[in-house]
Amino acid sequence: MEQTNTAVLSVRNMSMNFGGLRALSEVDLEVRQGEVVALIGPNGAGKTTFFNCITGIYTPTEGQVLAYPRDGKEKRINGMRTNLVCELGMARTFQNIRLFPSMTALENVMIGRHCRTKAGILGAILRGPGTRREEQDVVDRSYQLLKKVGLEQVANEYSRNLPYGAQRRLEIARALATDPFLLLLDEPAAGMNPQETLELKEMVIKIREEFQVSVLLIEHDMKMVMSLSDRIYVMEYGRVISTGTPAEVSADPQVIRAYLGEESDA
């Protein structure tokens, strides 16, 4: 897909203090349309905190978080409620998988459609033709998404019964169901073997094409990060210590010093 230089997410000078602890310090980060940007760094560098700050789970102590949804208008989303951030078009997955265990795979994805549909209590009770159409549409779309991630066979399985790799893919499908312009993946390859990681990489590339989304991902698996990302940000102790293309970053002595060189076998 054509990468333009228009940003979809622009984080400027963001800091996050928890009482006395400075978790994030003057972080600048930008994701441009169609890019896959990776956020890497040792454990405790503040990567997931960063995600939490831009999705409204925390309110940044300082700085600006600017989003540029599909309608093109810039929107400051500091401290915006998490569900509104999702409605705006930024959907995420979680480091420790957070699926809905006693709902089926299909239903998990259907939850993603919630913010794009509108039937209320009255609609639920009366179930007029409009509501029924909307419901069927939700079901169909969700099924299609399951197909995209290769899970259509287990559509009616409880999500807690799915194998680990399938659960990770399901989380991504659920995020996609919200029609995002930016997909935030928190360690999507964690716990996967090399084969699964390769499949995941291909899936992310395919998703970027088909759904026209930009991707910001946190990852530890260096092979995947290097081959998949357009640009990388490296964090350490809450600061961005390096940024650039994979080639640039892997040559940066700062980064090498910080932690690169370890082959992550996930």
Binding site: L99, M103, H114
Partner: peptide, 27 residues
């Protein structure tokens, strides 16, 4: 009717995992 509806599913999601629920766009 409620159980098998958009609202009903959002309640179920709320019951299972509040944080994921909110992150998926449910108020």
């Amino acid at each position: 009717r409620l159980k098998d509806s958009r609202i009903g599913r959002s309640w179920l999601a709320l019951r299972e995992d509040e944080i994921a629920c909110q992150a998926m766009g449910i108020d």
